[in-house]
Computed example of a mutant assay.
Amino acid sequence: MKAKKILQRAGMLGLSVTALINAVCTYIFFQAFGRKKERSFRLHSKKSSSLQEKKYDARLSSRKTWLSHQPFEEVFLNAYDGLRLYGRLYSPQDPQASEKDCAQSSSSRKSSKEPATILLCIHGYHSDGINDFAIFTPFYKKKNLTFCLVDDRAHGRSDGHYIGFSFHDRYDCLTWANYLANRFGPDCRIFLHGLSMGAATVLSCSNSDHLPSQVKGIISDAAFSSGWDQVAHVMRVRLHIPVFPMLLFYDKICRAIGGYSLKYIRPVDCVRHSRVPILFIHGDADNFVPTSMAYKLYNACSGPKQLLIVPGAAHIMSYITDPKAYQRAFTSFIKKCIHNSPHKGIESGAK
């Protein structure tokens, strides 16, 4: 009888602990992956405001002001599951042209042998197209590039309640890529430029059979190699909670509410069979997405590839830390992809 009571109490205790862990993981999921109002800047450093972040924030504000005076076209697309996706299309030719006019300008470029070069820009976690990519846009404009700043599902002006963490977003990215390919024609050159979660998204598209042939390359800035490993890193380093068994419970919540498992978010597997060249960029002071993940992704990639590691750069700070090195790597990579010239191996460090 005494043993039976002990077993009953142990069972009740086990159920109580399980219920508590499940409640904590559910709370974390809604805080981490639930839709939130985007902020003008997202802090990733341990300090509340580092000098690097202050520099970024000031530069971002001026770039957003500059971008607000540039003409653009609003684009709405339907995702594979019915959500409405939003993007802004900026063109050096005629940004507010209709699709018919755009097709005519595309024909004109074809006749003059100057096909459009287009960037599809996929932002990161709890941000939007403008907040993450405004910093790059004067450079894009200077290079005479057409660029499309999209809002991921559950971000900005796109529909959705829960962040896809690159799982659902990879299908949305392919939807955008095929839209741009159909709109600008068979001769256009499309490059996918992703930051952080957006970088993991574009890498997850690299081996897809649905990637249009017009996509010539991918620029991945601060991507994580695995959704499981990234969440484990955040739990261990930033939240200071035990990865086991919390991550197992958390993954069940992701499946039940988000519709995906972290185990199936593996950009590192996708790049092993990439159909296009990839430029990997990462800061060596990134404490949000470990720099080791950049090396893991680069080493796994079996196709044409380049790697730029920027000394002193925190998470998604590579461009603001050393814009010249970033621009050199970016420009040379696009030229090599367009002209189908052999790619160099590693290009590490900021010169």
Rank of each mutant, 00 (worst) to 15 (best):
I163K: 08
L145I: 04
P138L: 09
D172L: 06
D172W: 02
I163H: 13
H168C: 07
R153W: 07
H155G: 07
L119K: 02
F147Y: 15
R183E: 14
K113F: 10
L192S: 08
Q104E: 14
S158E: 14
D159Y: 01
A97D: 13
H123W: 07
A116D: 06
L120A: 05
T175M: 02
H155K: 07
V202S: 00
I118Y: 02
I190F: 11
K100L: 15
F147C: 10
F133P: 01
I163E: 06
K141G: 03
N207F: 05
K143Y: 11
C205W: 06
S107P: 00
Y125M: 11
Q104I: 15
R189I: 04
Y171Q: 15
D159I: 02
L192P: 05
K113T: 09
A154C: 13
K141P: 01
F139T: 12
G160M: 09
D187Q: 14
K142D: 14
E114I: 09
M197F: 08
D101Y: 01
G198N: 11
L174S: 03
L145E: 00
N131I: 01
N182T: 11
C102F: 01
H193Q: 08
L174M: 08
N178S: 14
S106I: 10
R109Q: 12
T137Y: 09
K110W: 03
S107G: 06
K100I: 14
I122P: 00
F147E: 07
L145G: 01
H155Y: 06
S112N: 02
F167R: 00
H161Q: 14
D187T: 12
C188G: 11
D94P: 02
N144Q: 15
N178I: 05
P95K: 04
F167T: 00
L195I: 06
L180A: 04
A154F: 05
P115H: 00
S108F: 08
G129N: 13
D169E: 15
N182C: 07
I163T: 08
K110P: 00
I118C: 03
G185Y: 03
P95T: 07
R157Y: 02
S208I: 09
L203Y: 07
F133H: 01
A103N: 05
L119I: 13
E99I: 13
C188W: 10
F147D: 07
F136T: 04
F165V: 06
L180K: 06
I163D: 11
C173W: 02
K100C: 04
S111M: 13
H161R: 14
S196L: 12
R170D: 04
P115S: 04
S107A: 15
R109I: 02
I118Q: 01
D159P: 12
K141N: 14
L145C: 01
F139E: 12
P92E: 04
A103E: 09
P95Q: 10
G124V: 07
G156L: 09
A199E: 05
G194M: 11
A116S: 12
F167A: 12
A181M: 09
R109L: 13
A154N: 10
A199C: 06
Y171D: 14
L180S: 03
N131C: 06
D128K: 01
C148F: 15
Y125S: 01
L149D: 01
G124F: 11
K141T: 15
M197L: 15
D128W: 00
A181K: 03
A200S: 15
K100R: 14
F136A: 03
N144Y: 02
C173L: 09
Q104Y: 11
G164T: 11
F165K: 08
L203V: 13
S98W: 11
S158I: 10
F167P: 00
S196M: 08
H161P: 02
